[in-house]
Structures are given as C-alpha cells and as structure tokens.
C-alpha cells in the first residue's frame, strides 16, 4: 500500500490515510474485494501507531468504503458510484464555503460574489 504520510502536516495522520485510501478506491486503483493490509502491517510500513491505522479503518468502514470481516481482515467494499460522486460534491462544497467565507471577510455582498462566480465560470 503506497501511502504518503506527512508527519508535520496539521492534518491528522488518520485523516491523511482515509483521504488517500478513498482516492485509491474511487480511482479504481483498489478494486472491490481487494484485501487491505492488516492494521499492524500498515502501521509497521508507515511507522505510525496501530491505533491510528485502526481509527482510519474504522472511519472508512463507517462510511462504507471498506468491510472488515472479523478474523479475516479488511476488504474494499463495493462502493456505490453515487457515493463517490457525493464525496466529490462534498469536497467542492467545502471549497465554495471557504471562498464565500473569505469573500464575506473582505465585505463582498451576495451579488458581488455571484458576479465573480459567473466570471470565473465563463473562463471554463
């Protein structure tokens, strides 16, 4: 499993694992039913604590990206393609939010922002 962990990033390590794994699952690099490395193995490979990996796996399981079969290991779930799209939309939403917040901070009105949005959009 090729994950790159940035130890000095402000993003918690388990979030880094989650986002990179999701990326791999969505892009099809990790196929459904593929077996993931065990918690201990991944923690060994990444030189991070096992609890961190476990936290990441738990989070992904809750979101339906992976399935853990007790005693067997964790596997990539059959991810609903809508889930993938939803996920991407969430990211876009987040970026919009950030933009709007910045806009408000420097005193832009709703109309100013709409106008700006149209300008940027027309460039594509």
């Amino acid at each position: 499993m090729n994950l790159i962990i940035n130890n000095s990033s402000m993003t918690p390590i388990y979030e880094q694992i989650v986002s990179q794994m999701k990326e791999k699952i969505m892009s099809g690099q990790l196929k459904p039913d593929a077996m993931l490395p065990s918690v201990r193995t991944l923690s060994k490979d990444l030189r991070i604590s096992a609890l961190t990996v476990k936290k990441a796996y738990d989070a992904m399981e809750q979101e339906g990206y992976i399935v853990t079969v007790h005693g067997k290991g964790s596997f990539v779930a059959n991810v609903n393609p809508n889930l993938a799209i939803e996920e991407k939309q969430k990211e876009v939403e987040k970026i919009f939010e950030q933009g709007i917040r910045k806009g408000k901070e420097c005193g832009m009105t709703k109309e100013d922002m709409m106008e700006l949005f149209d300008v940027v959009l027309s460039d594509f």
Partner: peptide, 24 residues
C-alpha cells in the same frame, strides 16, 4: 511506535493519552 503514551515526572503520571490524539 506506541499506541498510547504515559508521561511521568517526579514519580507521578502527569499525562496519559493515545499517541494519535497527542499528535492530532
């Protein structure tokens, strides 16, 4: 390496936390 860490000073445990929580 560690999953959780105890911090000891002057003979007393002054902090106990999961490494993950400490770092994040």
């Amino acid at each position: 390496l560690c999953d959780d860490i105890y911090m000891i000073a002057n003979g007393k445990i002054i902090m106990h936390e999961e490494t993950d929580v400490l770092l994040s």
